[in-house]
């Protein structure tokens, strides 16, 4: 059983009287441990696809299953619970909570988990994780005191800290320069390899594709290509200090 299963998934947004189809009958399976990029031009439906997998949205038609559970049958609280326990998000604009420090931002995800008694990661492990993503010594800085690359590292730590089944990254490098973008990608792939965490990206950054083992191409809401490949050897290992 695949980790993510999409069967004939369509999503139509309504803008006033206009119906805007974002996805039109997508079938897709993603196995656990994959490092997959969703590519395609703007408006091809990449973000919509990630939102559906990430339980932030429900399809207009079709079935989305995550670890065998059909999401469209679940209410908002159950969807929130799945997001909390199974899904890590990484955003183009980082979306850290501004009033919390780097460490607190990571702890926040953990605190949500703990309240359900499902957390297994302890406080000092947050510090270790931050060190692992290259932020040793910056734990107590607030997002405003960190560079874009550093913020995105915090976001990665926040996504990973709860050991999610899948990490969904929507254009994770779009707001970074190429050097920082590459470092982030290397970090994510290292995490993928080290922890076996499933990663799905949306991107139109060719660099991201370099790192991907599978590239799913969307166009006008349809999957037009699904290509599995050995990624290019990474020029540098992920920087972990």
């Amino acid at each position: 059983m695949a980790l993510v299963e999409l069967e004939g998934v369509s999503k139509t947004y309504r803008q006033g009287k206009l119906e805007v189809p974002a996805l039109r009958g997508v079938d897709l399976e993603i196995e656990a441990g994959e490092f997959t990029a969703i590519v395609g031009p703007s408006g091809s439906g990449k973000t919509t696809l990630l939102n559906l997998i990430g339980c932030l949205d429900v399809p207009t038609a079709g079935i989305v299953r995550l670890a065998g559970r059909e999401l469209s049958r679940l209410d908002r609280n159950a969807l929130a619970d799945i997001r909390r326990e199974k899904i890590g998000f990484i955003f183009q604009s980082f979306n850290l909570i501004p009033v919390l420090t780097a460490k607190e931002n990571v702890e926040f995800a953990l605190a949500l988990l703990r309240r359900n008694g499902a957390g297994q990661v302890h406080g000092e492990q947050v510090t270790e994780l931050l060190a692992e993503v290259g932020l040793a010594g910056l734990e107590n800085r607030r997002p405003g005191e960190l560079s874009g690359g550093q913020q995105q590292r915090v976001a990665i730590a926040r996504a990973l800290v709860k050991a999610p089944a899948i990490v969904l990254a929507d254009e994770p490098t779009a707001n970074l320069d190429s050097e920082n973008g590459r470092a982030i990608l290397e970090l994510m792939r290292a995490m993928n390899e080290r922890r076996g965490t499933t990663f799905v990206f949306s991107t139109h950054d060719p660099m991201v594709m370099e790192y991907s083992r599978r590239i799913v191409t969307l166009q006008d809401g349809r999957v037009v290509a699904d290509e599995r490949r050995e990624p290019d050897a990474a020029p540098h290992p992920a920087r972990c200090s």
């Binding site: 990430g54 932030l56 908002r76 609280n77 929130a80 619970d81 799945i82 997001r83 909390r84 326990e85 899904i87 998000f89 955003f91 979306n95 850290l96 909570i97 926040f108 995800a109 949500l112 988990l113 926040r158």
Partner: peptide, 10 residues
């Protein structure tokens, strides 16, 4: 929105 994505219930 971020908090919701992180799994906070409404």
């Amino acid at each position: 929105g971020t908090m919701k994505a992180l799994g906070m219930r409404e």
